[in-house]
Nucleic acid binder design. Structure first.
Lengths: 208, 208
DNA sequence: CTGTTAAACTAAACACTGTCAAGATAAGGC
DNA sequence: GCCTTATCTTGACAGTGTTTAGTTTAACAG
C-alpha cells in the first residue's frame, strides 16, 4: 500500500477515493440529484473512470449501500458496548444506534432502504445486510425467557422491535419539518429515553 | 366540461392528463428513472408543455404526492367503514389501510415519504398530509380511556401506533425480496391479523 | 360577427447527465 | 528487457430537464 502520487496517470487507489467522494456527493446533493460526473470531477478524473471499478452508477451506489450496512451494524454494536449487558438494555441500545445512524446519515439510509435500483446480486451488500438483520434477531431472542417454548412470540417480538425501530428511523430521517420529532419534544422526554420506551413496549414488557 | 378534441392544439384538460400519465410512468419506470419527457411523449405533447402547468418536474411530482395523501386517507376511511365501530377496531383498520396503500402503491409511497425534493410550500400537499396525520391522531385518542388524565400517554401511544404502521408499510413496500414478509409467513398468521396484533400491542392493550 | 387579449402549447436550443468503444499510459510478471 | 494486463483518457452518443421566443387557439369585449 503506497501513497498515491500527485498527478500520476494511475491514481493509486482510485476505487476508495471514488467511494469517499461519492459519499460526499451524496450528502451534498442528495440521492435525487446524485451525479457521477461530479464525483469524477471532484477527484480530477474522467467521467468514464468509475465505470471500470464499479461497472456503472448503480454499482457504485450499491457498494456505498453495502458499506452503509457495515457501518450501521458497527454503530449498533458500539452503542451496546457502552451500556448495561442485560438483554433488554442491549436491544434498546441497538435500536437507538439504528435510529442515530438514520438521523446522522439520512441520504445513506435512504439509499440502503428505499432505493430500488440496488444490485441485489452484489455479494457484500447482501452479506452485510444479512449480518445486520441477524444481529437484530439475536438481540430480540436474547430477551425471550424460553426460546423453545415461545418460538412464535420470538418471531412476533422480532417483527415488533424491528418495525418500531425502522419506523422511527425512517420518519425521523426523511422529513425536514418533522412531526415525529415534534411529538417527541411535546412528550417532555428526551429522545433516547422515549424511543427506548417504545422499543421495550414493542417487545412486550409483559415478561419482566 | 367538453370532451377533448382529437388533435386540437389545446388539449382540453392537459393538466389531469399529465397527472394520469405521470403516475403510469411512475409505476412503469419507478421514481429513480422517472422521465418527464416520456410522460409528455405518452400523451403526444411537447416536453415543455408540463412546465406551464406544474412549473417543473418537482411541481408535477409534488402534485402527485398530494393526490397520494388524499388517496391514502381515503383508503384508510374505506377500510374503517367496513369494520366494527369500536375505537380499537377502527384504529387497526386504519393502520391496515395505510399498509395496504403502501404495498399497492410502492412508488407513490416512496414519493410521498422518501423524496427530498418535494415542494413543501405546495398548499394542497401540506393540507392533505396534515389531514392524514390528524386522522391518525384522532384514531389513537379515541382509544384512550380519559384523554385529559393521560395526555402524555395519548401522545406516546400515537407515536407508537404511527411508528409501527409506518415501519411495516415502509419495509413491506420497499424490498423486493422481503424479510418482513418472510417473518409474517413463518408466523403462521395471515397478514392483516398479525399486523393488527402489532398495532394493538403498540397502543398498549393494557387498558382493556 | 369582429378585434383584442390572454392562455396553451410548440420549436429550437442549452447545459447537463450516464455510458460506451477505441486508444493511450503505466504497472507488474517473466 | 519485453509482454501482458489493468487503468485511465478521449471523443462521441443518446437522453434528460429547462428556458426563450414564437405560434396557435380559446375566451371575451365591442
Amino acid at each position: 500500500m503506497q501513497l498515491p502520487r500527485k498527478k500520476a496517470y494511475h491514481h493509486g487507489d482510485l476505487k476508495t477515493a471514488i467511494l469517499i467522494a461519492a459519499e460526499a456527493e451524496l450528502v451534498a446533493h442528495g440521492l435525487e440529484s446524485f451525479s457521477l460526473r461530479r464525483v469524477a470531477k471532484a477527484i480530477g478524473v474522467t467521467p468514464a473512470a468509475p465505470s471500470h471499478h464499479f461497472g456503472n452508477t448503480n454499482g457504485l451506489l450499491t457498494e456505498l449501500a453495502a458499506l452503509g450496512f457495515r457501518r450501521l451494524l458497527a454503530e449498533q454494536k458500539d452503542r451496546q458496548d457502552r451500556v448495561a449487558h442485560d438483554a433488554l438494555g442491549q436491544l434498546v441500545a441497538s435500536g437507538i444506534g439504528y435510529i442515530d445512524f438514520a438521523v446522522n446519515n439520512p441520504n445513506l439510509f435512504q439509499l440502503m432502504f428505499n432505493w430500488r435500483n440496488l444490485n441485489e446480486d452484489h455479494e457484500t451488500l447482501v452479506a452485510h445486510r444479512q449480518a445486520a438483520y441477524d444481529h437484530l434477531v439475536s438481540n430480540v431472542e436474547a430477551t425471550q425467557p424460553d426460546a423453545h417454548q415461545s418460538a412464535r412470540r420470538a418471531l412476533v417480538d422480532a417483527m415488533a422491535a424491528w418495525v418500531t425501530v425502522h419506523g422511527i428511523a425512517s420518519l425521523l430521517s426523511s422529513g425536514k419539518t418533522n412531526r415525529l420529532a415534534e411529538l417527541q419534544k411535546r412528550s417532555g422526554t428526551d429522545r433516547d429515553s422515549l424511543f427506548g420506551e417504545l422499543i421495550v413496549k414493542a417487545v412486550g414488557a409483559s415478561h419482566f
